[in-house]
């Protein structure tokens, strides 16, 4: 089974314009918290990847839907239901917010990555529509990864290269790192920003769990004990502050 957690990749293509917009009363201002927390806007990460983990434990800690550890069969059934629920949730999130994403002042571009053959047809349709509607936006790039696995992504990149070999567009011996990187879903979606500067994983787990394996080579890894439902602005600012306080000397980055 491919990773069934919902992974959210938030990709900042450029910082918002903080000046007053012509003809508007309000400024698109940075959150006060950013200014107060001593975070330098000029050295914010361009691409932040998030593994939003800990939903089950959060619910369990509050006495919500506590599964019986001994009922393996029921557990498997709940797992299937949970995957269906997550798929539906992603679909609802996209459908309910796509109009807001499309508005010029928000300027959010949406991409859904992962194995589409494992998505329900309705999600495939919703994802295509959202991508089409928001493709000209450039303020913030939001990538949602579902039924996604880093290994699967590398294998499908190989398949894409094999198709090019089949069509005589490429010789096998010409395949190199950059060609392989160019066939990854994140490259198609985010181009030069496909590699995250910062990877945040919530809930105290300290592993990538098959998420962005290739792309995270030089990513700053930030693990926090906070469960995803409790992860708010303060925790995010803490992650940014931690990112800025660390020494980063990798020279030229490759894809």
């Amino acid at each position: 089974m491919l990773s069934n957690f919902l992974s959210r990749t938030i990709h900042r293509t450029r910082l918002p314009d903080y000046r007053l917009q012509a003809g508007t009363d309000a400024a698109v201002a940075p959150p006060d918290a950013l200014a107060q927390s001593g975070i330098r806007p000029e050295s914010l990460p361009r691409h932040v990847a998030v593994v939003p983990d800990g939903n089950r434990r959060w619910a369990q800690a509050r006495g919500l839907l506590t599964p019986d550890g001994h009922e393996v069969g029921r557990r498997a059934l709940e797992h299937t239901m949970e995957v269906d629920y997550l798929m539906g949730m992603i679909e609802r999130t996209i459908r309910e917010n796509v109009d807001e994403y499309e508005r010029r002042e928000n300027g959010i571009r949406v991409h859904v990555i992962g194995d589409p053959s494992r998505w329900p047809e309705s999600l495939q349709k919703t994802a295509r529509e959202a991508e089409e509607k928001t493709r000209n936006n450039s303020k913030l790039h939001l990538m949602l990864a579902t039924c996604y696995s880093g290994r699967w992504e590398l294998v499908q990149a190989c398949r894409a290269l094999a198709h090019k070999v089949q069509g005589n567009l490429l010789r096998p011996e010409d395949i190199d790192e950059s060609m392989l990187a160019g066939e990854l879903q994140t490259s198609a979606a985010a181009g030069e920003f496909s590699c995250p500067d910062l990877v945040i994983r919530t809930s105290g787990e300290q592993r990538l769990s098959n998420f962005l394996l290739w792309q995270s080579a030089y990513s700053e890894l930030y693990f926090t004990d906070t469960l995803w439902p409790d992860f708010g602005e303060a925790e995010y600012l803490q992650a940014l502050s931690s990112f800025q306080s660390r020494e980063r000397r990798f020279g030229q980055r490759t894809a």
């Binding site: 995270s216 080579a217 030089y218 990513s219 700053e220 890894l221 930030y222 660390r246 020494e247 980063r248 000397r249 990798f250």
Partner: peptide, 8 residues
């Protein structure tokens, strides 16, 4: 110094 796996 950095918290990353440096291309492992």
């Amino acid at each position: 110094p950095a918290r990353c796996h440096l291309g492992f």
